[in-house]
Simulated scan of single mutants.
Amino acid sequence: MAVPKRRHSKTRAAKGRTHYKLTLPRPVKDEDGTWRMPHHMNMTTGEYNTKKA
């Protein structure tokens, strides 16, 4: 079995035990009042980044 040659610090050991969680993308409210996901086009108006797609 592999054994570490040197001891890990308390900080380094704690970093291995952390759980970095992903956050869900938050919807964006457009000028016309509809909600859409970020980096997606508005399905009601057909616009993306205020330009007609």
Rank of each mutant, 00 (worst) to 15 (best):
D30I: 00
T18K: 12
L22N: 12
E47Y: 14
M43F: 01
E47T: 15
D32V: 04
M41T: 06
M43S: 07
T23C: 08
K10W: 07
R6G: 05
A13S: 09
N49L: 14
A13E: 15
R7P: 01
E31D: 13
P38E: 14
R36S: 06
T11A: 15
W35E: 09
E47V: 06
M41R: 11
K21Y: 10
T18A: 10
A13I: 11
D32Y: 06
H19C: 02
K10D: 10
T50W: 12
M37R: 10
D32K: 07
H39Y: 11
R36L: 03
T18F: 04
G46N: 03
W35K: 07
E31Y: 02
N49I: 04
Y20K: 14
V28T: 12
G16V: 05
R17W: 03
Y48C: 01
T34H: 03
P25Y: 09
Y20V: 10
T50I: 07
T45V: 01
K29N: 07
T44H: 02
M37A: 14
K29W: 02
N42W: 00
K29V: 11
K29R: 14
P27G: 08
L22S: 11
L24W: 10
T18I: 13
M43R: 03
H40A: 08
K29Y: 03
P25D: 11
P38S: 09
M43W: 01
N49K: 15
H8P: 05
H8D: 07
D32F: 07
M37T: 06
M43P: 04
R7K: 14
M37C: 09
P38Y: 11
H40V: 00
T11I: 10
